[in-house]
Amino acid sequence: MAAPFGDRIRELRKKKGMTLDQLATATDSSKSYIWELENKDPPRPSAEKIAKIAAALDVTGDYLMGVDDGNLQAAEDKAFFRKYSQMSPEARARLRRLAKALDEDD
């Protein structure tokens, strides 16, 4: 059974070592709003807030909402690729070189 939306936010926030205040600041929200999302049933966030929270927690909105298969690693990979796609060509080239170097160490 997939974790409820609020549980996923709380779990990811704590995993990243973020406080309610820090997540609120990162998502242009108030501390009390983030607390409500974590603790109210059912939460009623807007699509914009879901996207901001997902970006701050380095996952997808689908993962937060329990729409996908619940695989955290896949959600983190999708979020990483989304950030990668928005990087400058130079930054993407540096990251590819770094990945290649890391792969050669294995």
Rank of each mutant, 00 (worst) to 15 (best):
T27H: 07
D103Q: 14
Q22L: 08
K83G: 04
P45K: 04
D69F: 07
T25R: 14
R44V: 10
E11F: 11
R82H: 14
K15V: 07
M1G: 10
D106Q: 09
Q22K: 11
D28K: 13
Y33M: 14
E90Y: 06
R97D: 09
S88Y: 00
W35M: 14
T25P: 06
A55Q: 06
F80K: 15
M18R: 12
W35S: 11
R10K: 11
D58I: 01
K49T: 04
L72M: 03
S88H: 03
T60G: 01
S29Y: 06
A93S: 06
V59H: 00
Q73E: 15
D7P: 08
E104L: 15
I53R: 00
N71V: 05
R10G: 05
A93L: 02
E36D: 13
K52G: 05
T19H: 08
A91S: 15
K78L: 02
S88L: 03
A99I: 03
A101C: 08
N39F: 04
I50K: 02
S29P: 12
L12Y: 07
A79D: 03
R44G: 11
S85R: 12
W35Y: 15
S88R: 02
R94Q: 12
K78F: 06
I50C: 00
L95Y: 09
L23N: 04
T25D: 14
E36T: 12
K31I: 04
D41N: 11
P45T: 05
A101R: 15
R13D: 03
D41I: 09
F81R: 12
A55T: 05
L102Y: 06
F80M: 09
Y33K: 09
Q22G: 10
A26P: 02
A24R: 02
E76Q: 15
D41K: 12
S85A: 11
D68I: 06
D41R: 11
Y63G: 00
K78A: 11
M87Y: 05
S30Y: 04
V67Q: 10
A74T: 04
A55K: 06
S85E: 10
A24N: 03
K16V: 08
T27A: 09
L64T: 01
K49A: 04
K49N: 05
L72T: 01
P42E: 00
K16N: 10
L57G: 01
D58P: 03
F81Q: 15
S88T: 07
A99T: 04
P89Q: 05
K15L: 13
E76L: 08
D69C: 08
S30W: 05
D58V: 02
S29T: 13
L95N: 07
